[in-house]
Write a protein that binds this DNA or RNA. Sequence first.
DNA 1: AATGATAGTGAGTACTCACTCACTTTTATG
DNA 2: CATAAAAGTGAGTGAGTACTCACTATCATT
Lengths: 215, 215
Amino acid sequence: MDERQQLFHLLNVDGQQLSEKQMNILQAAIDMFAEKGYAATSTSEIAKRAGVAEGTIFRHYKTKKDLLLAIVKPTLFQSVAPFLAKKFVKDVFENEYEHYEQFVRAVFKNRYEFVKTYLPAIRVLWQEMSFHDDIKAQFQTIFTNHVYEKFKQIVEHFQQKGELAPHPPETVIRLTITTIAGFLATRFLIMPDYPWNDEQEMERTIQFLMNGLKA
Amino acid sequence: MDERQQLFHLLNVDGQQLSEKQMNILQAAIDMFAEKGYAATSTSEIAKRAGVAEGTIFRHYKTKKDLLLAIVKPTLFQSVAPFLAKKFVKDVFENEYEHYEQFVRAVFKNRYEFVKTYLPAIRVLWQEMSFHDDIKAQFQTIFTNHVYEKFKQIVEHFQQKGELAPHPPETVIRLTITTIAGFLATRFLIMPDYPWNDEQEMERTIQFLMNGLKA
DNA sequence: AATGATAGTGAGTACTCACTCACTTTTATG
DNA sequence: CATAAAAGTGAGTGAGTACTCACTATCATT
């Protein structure tokens, strides 16, 4: 699966085929939104970079905002994808992961690959979320209804097994997420040019997290 | 010191007096940049909100970007202010802080108050840093020359005392900063409406951090 | 009261913006 | 091959955009 197909895979949630030019538009829009921001990028620039006429953009997307949402919505869902799987909690309870550490390792590795693969689209999502209340609201909904609910069950499960400190689950969740997200943000957004040894640094991060959370 | 005076204090690094209208302009610009972003905010809107003519803005700031920098630059310096103080490291070495935990507590509390007080300006700094390479470069310079250098000495000091795990100092620094920043970002940017018990949550965060980092 | 400097004004300017529409080209289907 | 639907085009449009400039108001100093 080449890069183009991956992009296709990320954005094409409802299964429709995208034409070559449509993919050019999306690719150009993602790259330019990520670089300069949505508001500072004009539709004429996107058209030029994509090698299409400006009108072609508006044939597929009613407004510029529509184009943004076509990028941001699928990325939003994919960014919490593991937690959207039906059998996700069940896997944990049925000893797919015997310890919280194994669970964290699986999530960490999985999200590392995701960020690495789709960085520009994730940049756009993250940056524009602050400015668009509708996107922010959708994120909040998905998080509380899917991620938080399932994460809480998992944390309580391992707390009952005596693996985790008796903090409120939301605190354990917050510390887990910010530790992982903190690494990914530093690694890919803040200091992408630093000579990282990813495996080593992720290992240290997990040790830190497990030490910090243990009962 | 009322809110207006604090703003003045934050922005007016070089000691010049600002007129009433100048402060209105800065206040309006900070609020609107924080809400809608720099690129999506027009100078005419800022003028309207500040209650001045549009020309007045350009009397004081040559360009719109100049206005942004007048907000962002002082905020950037203030955001790492503790590390800019000359005697900062000396204080640590002369047992002002006997343990790393005391040092972390002091920084944490200090930066918590800073973020709480100047949240809108910090939003602007954080959001626009991604889009403006000059701002990003200035941040990198300050960080590597001042924050990182001093932080490293402090970490090595406490590692020699056997308080901290023998990770590379940059790893300890990263984990410390992302843990603190992770709390502040969650508290003030991502979930500002959640019913936080700040003292308790900061206490848990520090316990987590110290547990995670101890030798 | 007179002077010069600084602060403030708002209509005007050249230009860019998102978006439209009448038209042409490509593609799918019998 | 014929036909219609879908995709693609690019000049055109009106509503802004950042910024200018000739002018007025305010203020400190003599």
